[in-house]
């Protein structure tokens, strides 16, 4: 689907990162509409503003007229702004938000991963073939096991873990269960139009459907300490085959242990 020329024009002005998820179009659509509203209002006000300054400068208009503007069109402008905002809110923002937080796909049809943030890295946890995440506990924490995964748990045997590396298959919903070990971090996938704060003590579900393959970066958007600026991870959206073979290779690498 190619956007209409007016949307396209604004998208070209805004120059957001390339959109690569199913819901990105909704986000970008609203972004474009809001910016058009802003542009129209700002231009309108500015033209009026400059016109008034020129026309009513003291040299051209030595005696002020205390009555000022007549007519109701300021009310219309204000009413118009309100109507526009209500439309943006009711028909764009709320539905799009609701589809993010209410309409989660089923786990069977999705790629489910856990992402655990910590100063200053992203720990990724795949459940493996059995679809079940193994038990984790602080007692198992170590430099080589930052998730504290209990490998003796049967569900954990096939779990794949990575650091700062999130691979995802294209065209299939992804559900990320986001949590943090320490501070507030914010899990950001710019091209997916995904951003979610990781709030200590809670698990935040996020879902999206990647629609393009590519290799990009995970960013942290919430000040989380000295290394906040370098809390960067990598994610790549792969074809299903590539993803499956990557996961298989990772799983195979686990086996001998």
């Amino acid at each position: 689907m190619t956007p209409d020329p007016i949307t396209k024009l604004m998208l070209d002005i805004l120059r957001m990162p390339p959109a690569a998820s199913a819901h990105a179009a909704d986000v970008d659509q609203l972004m474009v509409l809001v910016h058009w509203l802003m542009a129209i209002l700002f231009t309108g006000w500015s033209i009026f503003f400059v016109y008034v300054l020129v026309r009513f400068r003291r040299g051209a208009h030595p005696v002020a007229d205390p009555r000022g503007v007549r007519g109701r069109w300021s009310t219309f402008v204000e009413g118009g702004v309100l109507v526009a905002e209500v439309i943006l809110l009711a028909f764009f923002s709320i539905p799009a938000w609701s589809s993010r937080v209410d309409a989660f796909p089923s786990a069977q049809q999705s790629t489910v991963v856990r992402v655990v943030a910590e100063q200053f890295a992203w720990n990724v946890h795949y459940p493996g073939a059995d679809g079940a995440f193994g038990r984790t506990d602080v007692t198992f924490l170590s430099a080589t096991n930052p998730l504290g995964l209990d490998r003796s748990d049967p569900a954990a045997r096939d779990d794949v873990t990575t650091i700062n590396r999130l691979n995802l298959p294209m065209g299939r919903p992804v559900i990320v269960y986001l949590s943090t070990k320490d501070m507030v971090h914010s899990f950001t996938l710019p091209q997916m139009r995904v951003k979610q704060d990781a709030v200590p003590g809670t698990v935040q579900p996020v879902w999206f459907t990647p629609t393009r393959t590519g290799e990009w970066e995970i960013a942290c958007s919430q000040l989380c300490g000295l290394g906040h600026y370098r809390m960067r991870g990598f994610y790549s959206v792969q074809t299903r085959e590539d993803f499956a073979s990557w996961l298989a290779a990772e799983t195979a690498a686990l086996a001998p242990r």
């Binding site: 009026f48 008034v52 003291r58 030595p62 002020a64 007229d65 205390p66």
Partner: peptide, 28 residues
């Protein structure tokens, strides 16, 4: 979101009133 949109209206009213106040003036 709704309260945020609503609160923008009085700000718009004040800003618009200030701009409209210029109309008919003898601006120094």
């Amino acid at each position: 979101q709704a309260t945020t949109m609503i609160i923008s209206i009085p700000s718009v009213v004040i800003l618009t009133s200030l701009i409209l106040s210029l109309w008919g003036g003898s601006i120094r």
